[in-house]
Each structure stands twice: as C-alpha cells, then as structure tokens.
Design a protein around this nucleic acid. Structure first.
Length: 522
DNA sequence: TTTGCCGGGCG
DNA sequence: CGCCCGGCAAA
C-alpha cells in the first residue's frame, strides 16, 4: 500500500503557503524553518499554539500561526497539518519555558527524522524536484534550517560532561540566549558542518525577535537534497578532505527540505562546510551493530558503511542512500583539549546515542576498534579522509570480522577492547538511560571513547590487543548452545522497529520475511 | 497488545 | 529458492 510510503516527518523545511506580507493578497510560499510553541501565556494550560517561522522567498523570515499557513507542500512531507512529531519530543521535558522549536533539534529528533525521511527522500527525488528548483533560485543567504542539532555554546562554562548531561536530560537544548562569542572561533577548532549554531531560530520567545546567529549560516543539515550519492564525490575536490562532509548520503536525512540548498548549493549540493567555531567538532559514527567507527567525514563514513557493512564495492554513486541510516553525527567537544587527538569524547556519544546496552553481554566493541578509535584527528588532518582512508584503515580489521554483508551478525560476540572502553562504557551507561528510553536509534554502543592522551600509542598497541581478543572470542564457541527452541527473541532493535512498517522496504530481507533479523542481531 | 520469528505454504 | 504469512510466544 501506499501507506508505507508515508512517514511522519517534521514540517521543518516544508514549503507552505502563507498570507502575503505585503497585503496584496497573493499567497506566498515559504519554507518552514522552525516551529515553536507558545504556551507561555496560557501557562500550562492547554492550548499551545505553534508558531512557524517561515523563510519567505524574498529571504525574509516571518512567523505565522498554524492557522495562517496552509500546508502546501508538494512533497510528501507532512500530510497532516502542520504538526510534527517534533512537537512531542520537544515538549517532553524541559520545564523551562524556552523550548521553542527547540525540540527539533535535539539529537533524537534529528535522528528520528533522518531515519524516517532520509532514505525515502533520497529515493524519490522526483517528488521534490520542483521544490528544489524553486529553492535553488532563491538564494537565501541564510539558509537556515532547522534540522540539526543546534549547538550551543553554552558549554563553555561547563565541562563536557556536564554539558552532556544537561543536554541529555533536557533533550532540548536551549538555544543560548546570547551568542557567545566564542573564542575558538578563530581557531580551527572544529568545524562542524552541521549544526552548530542551530538553526537559529529566531530566538524565540519573548525577547527578541530573533536573532539568529548568522554566523552559522550553515547548513547544518546537509544534504537535504535528494540526490545523494553523487554529491559526495563531486565535491570532494573542493572541500577538502576534512570535511568531506556530509555528503552524500546524509543528505537525505536530515531534513526534508532544503535548507541548504541555497547558497552554497549552487556549487555543490552540499553546503560548504565551514569550520565552525565553537569547540565542537562533528564526527560521523557508524551505527552498525558492533562497529563504532568514527570518521570525520560523512563521505568517509558512508563509504565505510557501504563497503564494509553493506558489502558494496561501488563508489558512492551507486549508493542508494542507505548508508545514511547507519551512521550518525556526533559532536565532539574539542574544547581545550583537543583538538586533537583523541577525539571522541564520551560525551557526545552519549548525547546522541544512548546505547542501551541492554544486551549485557557485549559491550561495545567495535569491530575494528582500533582503526576507528584512533580517531581521526581533526578534520583537517586527514587528507584523504573522504575516500581512501577509511577504507584502507578499516580493511585490516575487516579481516577479523567476518562478514560480508551480514557482518552484523557475525561480529556480535566479541567484546570490546579495553582501554577506551571503560571510560566509554561507564560514561555511556551512566547517562544513557535518559535517552535510551526515549528513542532510538542508537542502538549500539559507542565504542568510542576516550580522549585522552594515549592516542597514538594506543593505536598501535591497542590494535594488537584487540585483535587478539577478538580472535579469541570468535574462536570460542560462539553462540552455539542456545539453540533449541526459539531463538529467544532479540532484544535489540529490529528493522521493524527502526524503520517502521512504513519503510518496510528498508528492512533486511529476513525481517521482511518475518525471519530472524539479520541486520540488527543481538 | 506488540513484536520477533518459526514453520510452512506458494510460485 | 525467494517471498510471504499464520500463528506462537516473549515482552
């Protein structure tokens, strides 16, 4: 049925008709950039009204109430009125009145969206073509957009852990009220291609009308464009390795709409990743079952997924965008530390993904821990990040893993290596709870880890260790005994849960056949 | 009630 | 075989 194609998605980015500001009566179209709820006046009571911040064709932003705009999206987007799941998510916790559109930016929400939308979009470019064209022509300098995570810089004060906890607990991150200017801007701290500043939603609320931070024009979102794959390659040349970014795949994911197309899009589909100021850096983490690979570029992670997990050899062009579902972005707080090296601080992972490690048995492990773990230095460093690097690196590890397409299952049994793990593990677990309950997608634990000093050394050494461990594990009698009777029922997420009935076509075959899931094994 | 998936049917 | 679904049982 066609029903499967419908997915709930947010309206952010959706094209809507709104009353003409000029008063001439002719409706104008705009793109929803943010949604916020105003329930302040009414206090807790009920009516909470949603106010949509719409980016008009002329580049201006206006706010409209629900009644004022008509949904006229041409694409599948929200069919229903304008309300989105975002609302829910945002409303859940934050007591503070300022949630504004916020919720949407929470990682979970984003993730959700990307899951739901991403793939589909990329698959049917046609649907959006019209809007894309239109959008292209309107060049909006600020392509704001919503989707992503809004980053805030408030963390300056707090250390990463604190920040993570806060974010986690609130699930919505408050936009900062005042844009701090952060220091590191100049430096290279880290760019992030996405979200850093949040979509600036207008500030929301009461006070100002909003200023969004221009500084981040960006796009956070990346690729909204439907046509995913190619882009990666195409821009590779320009964008330096470092960013790689977002490429291809991700594209679809985030927000359905456009966003970025605007400005930068002219050249390439994606926005140019600019270095973002804060101390945050964006990394892309493989969500494949036991793989926690983290790469600094989207292109790299996609390639990793495509080749390692999906078993595809072709280049990005043959990708159908599926990779998008297997990785997520994580923001790292590089602040003082470091830039460098280590990279993955536990923090970020926790925020985004709660790794509910319910499955007690195996920790994170990564298949190729070492390789990833070593992390990729800041974006800048790895030149080839986009392409080769990941592959080449991962390669070795691949040996250990078995796998082919279905690596997923094979790897399961292994346990994680050491070093980083403890940290990571503990960290994760501790915060995770919060998120995990809420949702999703991150079913795997982040192998990532740590930060610290050990960086390079650990790499080599770690590698060895791990490898040995891994092997041992594998050799040991794998699952074996369990047999008998039913398979016990996996506790982890399964395709059905992850993709939902609507996207049944995205399920692994086994799930489709109602057989034991091969993709998300437990 | 939902969800994973076994067992079995059909082409 | 590939594909699908009835229906059981765990959650």
């Amino acid at each position: 049925m066609h029903t499967r194609r419908l997915v709930k998605r947010s309206i952010l980015g959706s094209r809507v008709y709104a009353p003409s500001p000029t008063g001439d009566g002719a409706p104008v179209t705009g793109v929803v950039q943010a949604v916020k709820q105003e329930n302040r006046d009414v206090s807790a009571a009920g009516t909470r009204r949603s106010v949509y911040t719409v980016l008009m064709q002329d580049g201006s932003l206006k706010e409209f109430s629900e009644e004022e705009i008509a949904a006229g999206f041409n694409h599948t987007a929200a069919k229903a009125p304008l309300k989105s799941s975002l609302k829910h998510s945002s409303s859940n916790g934050a007591p503070e009145g300022q949630k504004m559109e916020g919720g949407c930016l929470s990682p979970e929400a984003v993730e959700e969206q990307r899951l739901a939308d991403g793939k589909r979009l990329s698959r049917d470019p046609d649907t959006r073509s019209v809007s894309l064209l239109e959008q292209k022509r309107k060049v909006v300098s600020s392509s704001i957009d919503v989707p992503h995570a809004r980053r805030s810089e408030e963390e300056v004060d707090m250390d990463k852990v604190t920040a993570a906890m806060v974010l986690t607990s609130l699930s919505t991150s408050p936009l900062v009220r005042s844009p701090p200017v952060k220091v590191s801007e100049a430096l290279s701290g880290s760019w992030k291609d996405n979200g850093s500043a949040g979509p600036f939603t207008p500030s929301s609320n009461s006070s100002s009308g909003g200023y969004w931070s221009w500084s981040a024009p960006s796009d956070q979102s990346n690729p909204s464009t439907p046509s995913p794959p190619l882009s990666a390659d195409s821009f590779k040349p320009f964008r330096v390795p470092s960013l790689g970014g977002v490429g291809p795949g991700p594209a679809g994911p985030e927000d359905p709409s456009l966003d970025e197309q605007d400005g930068s899009s002219l050249l390439f589909d994606e926005p140019i990743p600019r270095k973002r100021k804060n101390s945050m850096k964006v990394m892309f983490k493989c969500l494949w079952k036991n793989c926690g690979k983290v790469l600094s570029t989207a292109a790299g992670i996609q390639r990793h997924i495509r080749t390692i997990h999906l078993g595809r050899n072709c280049d990005s062009d043959c990708s159908d965008g599926e990779e998008d579902f297997y990785y997520t972005e994580i923001k790292l707080n590089t602040d003082s530390v470091a830039e460098g090296l280590s990279s993955l601080s536990p923090v970020s992972p926790s925020v985004l993904s709660p790794p509910p490690p319910p499955p007690s048995p195996l920790p994170p492990l990564g298949q190729l821990p070492d390789s990833h773990r070593p992390q990729q230095p800041p974006d800048t460093k790895e030149p080839h990040a986009g392409g080769t690097t990941p592959l080449s690196r991962s390669a070795p590890s691949a040996l250990y893993l078995i796998h082919t397409d279905h690596a997923y299952q094979a790897t399961a049994p292994v346990s994680i290596p050491s070093s980083g793990s403890n940290l990571a593990g503990s960290a994760c677990t501790s915060f995770t709870p919060t998120n995990s309950s809420s949702f999703s997608i991150s079913w795997q634990s982040p192998p990532v880890t740590f930060t610290g000093n050990t960086v390079s050394p650990s790499k080599s050494q770690g590698f060895g260790e791990q490898r040995s461990q891994t092997i041992a594990v594998l050799s040991s009698p794998p699952r074996a005994t369990t047999a008998l009777s039913r398979k016990v029922r996996g506790e982890g997420k399964k395709c059905r849960k992850v993709y939902g009935m609507e996207n049944r076509d995205m399920w692994c075959t086994a799930c489709r056949w109602k057989k034991a899931c091969q993709r998300f094994t437990d």
